[in-house]
Amino acid sequence: MNINRPGRSGAFGGRAAGQAEGGITAENLTKVFHVSARRPGRFSAVRSLISPQRVARTAVDGVSFQIQPGELVAFLGPNGAGKSTTIKMLTGILTPSSGRVEVNGLVPHRERIANARRVGAVFGQRSQLWWDLPARDSLSVLADIHGVGPELFRERVAAFDRILELSAFWDTRARQLSLGQRVRCDLAAALIHDPAVLYLDEPTIGMDVVVKEQVREFLRDQVENRGRTVVLTTHDMTEVERLAERVILINHGQIVYDGDLSTLRRNHSDTDEPDGNADLEDVMRRAFGRQASELLGERAESESSTRLGGTGERAGAQNADKPQAAMSS
Rank of each mutant, 00 (worst) to 15 (best):
D161N: 00
D161C: 00
D161F: 01
I163C: 03
I163L: 01
L164T: 07
L164G: 08
L164Y: 05
L164K: 09
L164N: 06
E165P: 06
L166E: 09
S167Q: 12
S167V: 11
S167R: 15
A168I: 10
A168Q: 12
A168N: 10
A168D: 14
F169A: 03
F169K: 06
F169M: 05
W170P: 09
W170V: 10
W170D: 10
W170S: 07
D171Q: 14
T172Y: 09
T172L: 08
T172N: 14
R173N: 04
A174M: 07
A174F: 11
A174W: 12
A174I: 05
R175E: 15
R175S: 13
Q176H: 12
Q176Y: 09
L177A: 05
L177R: 08
L177N: 06
S178A: 09
S178W: 13
G180R: 03
G180Q: 05
Q181M: 11
V183P: 04
V183I: 14
V183R: 05
R184C: 13
R184W: 04
D186I: 03
L187T: 04
L187P: 04
A188Q: 14
A189T: 14
A190D: 04
A190Q: 02
A190W: 02
A190H: 02
A190K: 01
I192R: 01
I192D: 03
I192E: 00
I192C: 01
D194A: 00
A196K: 10
A196Q: 13
V197L: 00
V197I: 06
L198F: 02
L198N: 01
L198I: 00
L198P: 00
L198E: 02
Y199F: 05
Y199C: 02
L200T: 11
L200N: 11
L200Y: 13
D201V: 11
D201F: 06
E202C: 15
E202W: 15
E202Q: 14
P203M: 00
P203I: 01
T204D: 03
T204V: 03
I205L: 14
I205Y: 15
I205V: 15
I205D: 15
G206A: 11
M207R: 12
M207W: 15
M207A: 12
D208W: 04
D208S: 01
V209P: 14
V209A: 12
V209S: 14
V210R: 02
V210N: 03
V211C: 06
V211F: 10
V211K: 06
K212N: 11
K212E: 08
K212I: 10
E213P: 14
Q214F: 10
Q214T: 13
V215P: 05
R216P: 13
R216H: 12
R216A: 07
E217G: 04
F218P: 00
F218I: 00
Q222A: 05
V223K: 11
E224C: 12
E224T: 12
E224D: 14
N225E: 15
N225A: 15
R226L: 08
G227M: 13
G227L: 13
G227W: 13
G227K: 12
G227Q: 14
R228S: 03
R228D: 06
V230E: 00
V231E: 02
V231Q: 03
V231W: 07
V231R: 02
V231P: 03
V231A: 00
V231K: 01
V231I: 05
L232F: 10
L232I: 08
T233M: 03
T234N: 04
T234R: 07
H235A: 13
H235P: 07
H235V: 11
